[in-house]
Amino acid sequence: MASPSEIADRPMGLRERKKLRTRATIQQEALRLFRERGYAATTVDEIAAAAEVSQSTFFRYFPAKEDVVMYDSLDPLMITAFRAQPPELTPLAALRGALVELRRTLPREELERERERHLLASTVPELRARMLTSLTGTVELLAEMVAERTGRPVDDLALRTFAGALVGISLATIESMARGSVEDYFDTYSRALELLEQGLPL
């Protein structure tokens, strides 16, 4: 997995922007087909046809069908928003500020696409297994983000415990997506961060 600096500072030339548009189109069409036909019933050929790309192009961007769902296009935006928060903020406060920024600036259709992606990842058995496997990489990414802000080494136990707690919050709140809107999920996640900030009083 790329480091926060590599993700956020990656150059965005014309070719790179075209690749991002193609990747986004494939994912958008795949999610639409999954919604209409179901994940298992949708084939790679159908996704490629809907996105108007060849099968080989599909596999150039996504090694397997499940990778279409697992690809998170918001990572670079989240990292940029996190790094832009005032340096005096704690990592938790900076994370909350970054979430507020994304919620304010991202188009609703993009937020809905993210909601749909997470719902698939949490409800389709093979995707859920893949999501759980990927959590180690998520912990690494969060640890690197917080290490950069705090100046602590990335293997610091407190830092890694914090990163693990953030992943735990994601797992604990993801079901709220099925029960409500994108706004509901953001509110639930923000409240969970507040509880963590308070020391999880029980």
Rank of each mutant, 00 (worst) to 15 (best):
A2D: 08
E6T: 11
A8F: 09
D9H: 09
R10K: 11
P11M: 03
M12H: 06
R17K: 09
L20Q: 14
I26T: 01
L31M: 15
R32M: 10
L33T: 05
L33N: 03
L33V: 09
R37A: 09
R37W: 03
A41P: 00
I47L: 07
A48C: 07
A49G: 05
A49D: 13
A50C: 06
E52P: 03
E52R: 13
E52S: 14
Y61F: 14
F62R: 04
A64W: 02
K65P: 01
V69D: 05
M70T: 06
S73E: 15
L74Q: 09
P76K: 11
L77N: 06
L77R: 14
T80A: 13
A81F: 05
F82P: 04
F82L: 06
R83M: 04
Q85C: 03
E88R: 14
P91C: 00
A98N: 11
L99M: 06
E101W: 04
R103M: 02
R103W: 04
E109C: 00
E110Q: 10
L111N: 01
E114T: 05
E116G: 14
R117S: 07
R117Y: 04
S122I: 12
T123V: 14
T123G: 02
V124H: 02
R128Y: 04
R128L: 11
A129N: 07
L132E: 12
S134T: 13
L142T: 06
R149E: 02
T150W: 09
T150H: 03
P153Q: 10
D155N: 10
D156G: 03
F162P: 05
L171V: 13
S176F: 05
M177C: 09
E183Q: 10
T188C: 09
R191A: 15
A192I: 03
E194P: 00
E194V: 12
L196Y: 10
L200W: 13
